[in-house]
Amino acid sequence: MSDSAPAEAARVLVRNASKWYGNVVAVNDISFDLAPGVTGLLGPNGAGKTTLLRLVAGFLQPSSGTVEVNGQTSWRNPSIYRDVGIVPEREELYPFLTGREFVRLNAVLHELPFVDVATEQAIEAVDLIDRQDEKIGTYSKGMRQRIKVAGALVHDPTVLLLDEPFNGMDPAQRLKMIDLLRDDASRGRVIVFSTHILEELHYLAEEVLVVVSGRLAASGNFREIRRLMTDRPHTFTVTTTDNRRLASALIREPSVSGVQLDDGHMVIRAADRGAFATALPRVAKEHGVGLREVIPADESLESVFNYLVEA
């Protein structure tokens, strides 16, 4: 791995890609365009995340549509792997190799000029120097994940694809891996990782691709996605100097679809987010109520995901 940023901006372009097996549609007409940064591929188990990653990785032929990595078709094109690092979901590795031998093997197969230096840097990046000479068969699940990441990073790829990379890692390892991936993304890499665990995504990626039943349910910044979902009421937790008085005034506002008084605060459901944003301070001022705290309650990733899955 080198510290220099890639010369050209990395890019992953998927256009109307579908993948089906007989009558089973695994990925259905998905399009997206990814620039450098971290993108989370989110969806429930069996949604098509792995199939989508495999299409991007060139491991599967699209039934229709196109998949390009850095301007090159990924299917039947081994030359893309000079720019792509892949961390498969499956846990199986070569148990008879040491961690160092595995990463070195990856470096050799990439025909790197300085195999030993690249190997050491990659192992150091995943914090496995102390255990590098132990057989992979003795590694814990989290260590296997980390050595897989080292193998994928050893040739300094501009695109990194990770399928459920945090499986088996303890919290400290996760945080280290998140830091590593964030750092990589800041240096111009396209990083795509799949997960069905919202918390992982929350810490690492602002950009999301939400896949549900093989379809792209949403893509982009997850807070923006929530704001654009105008057919769903937005929920705010509001604390004021007089909750009861403001609640009775707000309920008459057309932008408000419901108000619930709770312990020390109120929960307001707004049918129109923009109109509510102007109505709230106006109504509060008219009734002499001071606003202490206004918190969007459903812009969390979890609520966005639940909306999309339920839709």
Binding site: A57, F59, P78, S79, I80, Y81, R82, V84, G85, I86, P88, R90, E92, L93, Y94, L105, N106, L109, H110, E111, G151
Partner: peptide, 15 residues
């Protein structure tokens, strides 16, 4: 069978 072929195939090596 065990999925490890992905590590050989994800390289620019001619098949």
């Amino acid at each position: 069978e065990d999925g490890t072929l992905a590590y050989s195939l994800s390289k620019p090596t001619a098949r």
